[in-house]
Simulated assay, not measured.
Amino acid sequence: MKICVNPAVPNILQDVKLFPGSFDGGYDLKLAALVGWVEKELCADESLLVLCVGRQTARDLKESPELALAAGTSGWTLPVALLDGQGPEAEHASYRQFVQGEARVLVSTFSLAGRGLDFSDSMAAADSRVNGLSLAVLLFDFPNNIREYANCIGRTARPGQRGLGRAVSFLPEGRFWIAGELIAMLDHCGQLVPEPLRRQHSDDAGFVAEMRAAMQKLLQPEAAAGDALPHVQCGGDFDAAKGVWILPASLPSYRRKLLHCLADELGLPHVSSGSDGLRRLHIARDRDALPDKFFVEGEEVLVADPRWPKEPTYRGMVVDPKINRRNRTLRVRLYNGRQSREVEADVNLVHVVSECSWSDGNSGPRLAPTTTGPRTI
């Protein structure tokens, strides 16, 4: 089976460095790795584009004396420049300094420099006698998805640049769930997959297989009779009477994400509950046994009017089943005849009336219809 990549991935050398033990990898650890890479790996005539998520991180890197010292070799007017939305004139100046070889390192964000910029001097593109950049791209943070990753590393190997370019990515534990897609892309591009990345993915695949067997056991009728779930290495508590499996808070967040996806696939209601550091994943046969509300994309709901919260008044459909943790809201499409509109509804005012089919044909409980009937918008 061939992997279809859109956008196409440039044929450049790609390397991935893992940062286990921390959700975002830790700023100090990644800064030390960045400085070490610049000192040992960045060629003397090579420029470096560093991309990160937030503007504050970009500014911190720009002001880092360690990075400035590592990048400040002879022949460069400015060790580190910054492109972070300072205004058109300042942005143009930073961009010009970088593409014309005055600044060795340019730090920016995914949103500003992750796509759409060629990072080449127009003179170099028009005149072969003018040297263009030999550009390396380093992803200080890892993008949200593979498409964004492809866009970011595609800033190198552009027309007007020298060489094939290369890219280095820092992959923190919070993004380990994307390892499978990343490996598929590297294999598709004929790139060498770093052994730590392949080993991490193999470990996670074994973990998911073990958890799949336990979840399938939870779906079976004998689980309701008090049989314990199969032993799993991560542990957890099982309430046979309620049919709820509560995973330990020590489970890494990226593995919770993998299990949320697996529970969706198997048709098991699931929520994570608790404060950061004490957050635990609950998986159940019946959504009523969960400690928080659970919704499925596409299921029909009744949304109460805040003025009369006990009486469901609006008919709608769940657009995004993920509950906003801060606002405690849910994305719902409300209907009024042929017209509709999307709203963020208070989850306490949303009630399920009919449910879409799960992947294995299971469905959770249905609420009894109201005697007054729903109102339209």
Rank of each mutant, 00 (worst) to 15 (best):
M1Y: 01
M1A: 09
P7D: 11
V9C: 14
P10D: 09
I12D: 00
I12C: 11
V16K: 09
G21E: 08
D24I: 05
L29T: 07
G36I: 01
W37Q: 07
V38Y: 02
V38T: 14
L42V: 15
V50L: 11
E63I: 01
S64F: 09
P65W: 01
E66C: 03
A68M: 15
A70W: 01
A71F: 04
G75E: 03
G87V: 03
P88D: 10
A93R: 13
Y95V: 05
R96T: 03
F98M: 05
E102L: 09
V107L: 10
V107M: 05
S108E: 06
F110I: 13
F110M: 04
S111P: 00
L112S: 04
L112W: 02
D121C: 12
S122F: 07
M123C: 04
A125C: 01
D127S: 10
R129G: 03
R129F: 13
V130R: 08
N131Q: 13
G132C: 08
L133W: 14
D141M: 07
F142I: 08
E148K: 04
I153L: 14
T156C: 12
T156W: 15
A157S: 04
P159E: 12
G165Y: 01
R166D: 07
V168L: 15
V168D: 01
P172I: 00
P172W: 01
P172Y: 01
R175C: 05
A179S: 15
E181V: 05
C189N: 14
G190H: 06
L192Q: 15
R198T: 04
Q200P: 02
Q200S: 13
H201C: 06
D203K: 14
G206F: 09
V208L: 11
A214K: 13
Q216L: 09
A225M: 11
G226C: 00
H231I: 12
Q233D: 12
Q233E: 14
C234F: 02
G236E: 01
A240N: 07
A240I: 01
A241N: 07
A241R: 11
V244D: 00
P248Q: 11
A249T: 01
L251Q: 02
S253D: 08
R256Y: 02
K257W: 03
C261P: 00
A263V: 07
D264C: 07
G267E: 10
G274A: 08
A284V: 08
R287H: 06
D288T: 11
P291V: 05
D292H: 05
F294M: 11
G298T: 10
L302V: 15
L302D: 15
V303M: 07
V303N: 02
W308K: 12
W308D: 15
E311W: 00
R315P: 12
V319G: 03
P321F: 02
R325W: 03
R328T: 09
T329N: 11
T329L: 06
R331P: 06
R331C: 08
E344P: 09
S359F: 07
S359R: 14
S363T: 07
G364L: 04
P365S: 11
T370F: 02
I377Q: 05
